[in-house]
């Protein structure tokens, strides 16, 4: 995908959210207008399939070993699970979404990269129970995924 196409896609994305948020932050528009831009139905979806359709337009994306998810095997605290997604081996990445399969509402976040931004993001998420963390990467209209299981345990009783 050419940089131009990527840039167009990105602008489409930012018009829907980022720039508007900035405008709101600067007090230019009122927050009600912004709420419309936030993809409510994707975030309120109860299944991975609906969440993926809502955020990436498809729920049938193939696995891709060029995407790595760095997250603990066992969470130190289910309420604060560090997750890093690295898709820098894929060119022209437009966005990275993070999903926790067994959360009541699986979609956690969607990150839209600018043209000079690496296809990498690091954040911390809440996980109610042991589950796959899924990264959904969109690049020039092609969507692929990776998953990593994170165990959430009661803890205690160690040697």
């Amino acid at each position: 995908m050419s940089t131009d196409t990527k840039r167009r896609l990105f602008l489409k994305g930012t018009l829907a959210s980022g720039v508007v948020a900035l405008a709101a932050g600067a007090g230019l528009i009122n927050p009600r207008q912004v709420l419309a831009a936030w993809p409510k139905s994707a975030f309120e979806a109860k299944s991975v399939s609906e969440a993926m359709k809502g955020i990436a337009g498809t729920d049938t994306a193939a696995g891709n070993d060029k995407i790595t998810i760095k997250a603990p095997d066992i969470a130190e605290n289910g309420a604060v699970v560090p997750v890093k997604v690295d898709a820098t081996k894929i060119s022209g990445v437009d966005s990275i979404a993070i999903i926790a399969e067994k959360n009541p509402t699986p979609l956690i976040a969607n990150f839209k990269m600018g043209k000079s931004t690496h296809a990498f993001v690091s954040t911390r998420i809440k996980m109610g129970k042991t589950s796959n963390v899924i990264a959904v990467v969109s690049a020039g209209g092609s969507v692929s995924t990776a998953r990593k299981e994170v165990k959430v345990t009661i803890g205690g009783c160690g040697g």
Partner: peptide, 25 residues
Amino acid sequence: KLILEDVCDNLFNDDPYFQQGGDMV
């Protein structure tokens, strides 16, 4: 039961990286 299962998995998970090295509660 949930507690017993959780601790038992720390001991007998067949992947050692999921074992915490304690014994059963």
